[in-house]
Amino acid sequence: MEPRSSKAQLRSRIRSARASRRRAPVGVAASAWDVIRAKPVRSLLGYAALPGEPNLDPALDRFLATGGIVYLPVVTKVGAPLLFGRVTGSMASLESQGRWGIREPQDSGGLLTPAQLLSSEVGLDLVFVPALGFGTDGARLGNGGGFYDRTFGPLGAAPLAKGPRVLGVCFPEELELPGLVAEDWDLRIPAAVTELGLHTFDDS
């Protein structure tokens, strides 16, 4: 589904549906926590939810409380890959930054490049990737900025083809969007977490 207008229409429809929710379900954090505790996880990449997005804060705070290490993406400029900062307090302690108002860690300890984040020194075990939805093959529908594709896609700064376990995050009705398939540069996700649990995509 290359027509950009089609992806734009999907984005518009999903954003409208999310905006009509009275509040985001909290069950997705419980599902994420089930994943985290199922296998040993020392460090992970999460995200700080924007209004309307599935919120992982309770799971990330719980993981931090056990001594786990959480990194979050940091947007530096349009057209550049993401950088990453470590959370040193709770998720609630993070302040909104930049033009999109995303909660980001302070860079007092220095931000990591994608390659540094995926290095053996960091030892990242798990990556949660937010999305507006996914196609049947795990094609990800993002917000249109291309940050995750530019960072982790097949042609990105640090492709995720081999590395930590990668899980998308969305609402159940945003799974297996018809007609949405991965392009050569798109980040493809093998499975996604919703409030209903773990969903694995068809990799055929």
Rank of each mutant, 00 (worst) to 15 (best):
P25L: 04
G27Y: 04
V28G: 06
V28L: 07
A30G: 08
S31R: 00
W33H: 10
V35L: 15
R37A: 09
R37H: 05
A38F: 09
K39A: 15
K39L: 15
P40G: 14
V41P: 01
G46A: 14
A48Y: 13
A48I: 05
A49F: 12
L50S: 01
E53H: 04
P54I: 15
N55H: 04
L56I: 04
A59P: 10
D61W: 08
D61L: 08
F63D: 06
T66F: 13
G68V: 04
G68D: 14
V70A: 11
Y71I: 07
P73K: 06
P73N: 07
V74Y: 12
V75D: 03
K77R: 14
P81S: 03
G85D: 08
G85S: 05
V87I: 08
S90K: 11
M91F: 11
S93W: 04
S93D: 15
S93F: 05
E95G: 08
S96P: 10
Q97G: 01
Q97T: 12
R99P: 11
W100C: 06
R103P: 11
R103T: 14
E104V: 11
P105Q: 13
G110I: 06
L111A: 03
T113D: 09
T113K: 02
P114T: 13
L117P: 00
L117M: 11
L118V: 04
S119D: 13
S119A: 14
D125L: 12
V127T: 00
F128D: 02
P130R: 00
L132F: 00
L132K: 07
G133I: 07
T136D: 15
T136H: 03
D137S: 10
G138K: 09
R140E: 11
G142T: 08
N143W: 14
G144H: 02
G146L: 10
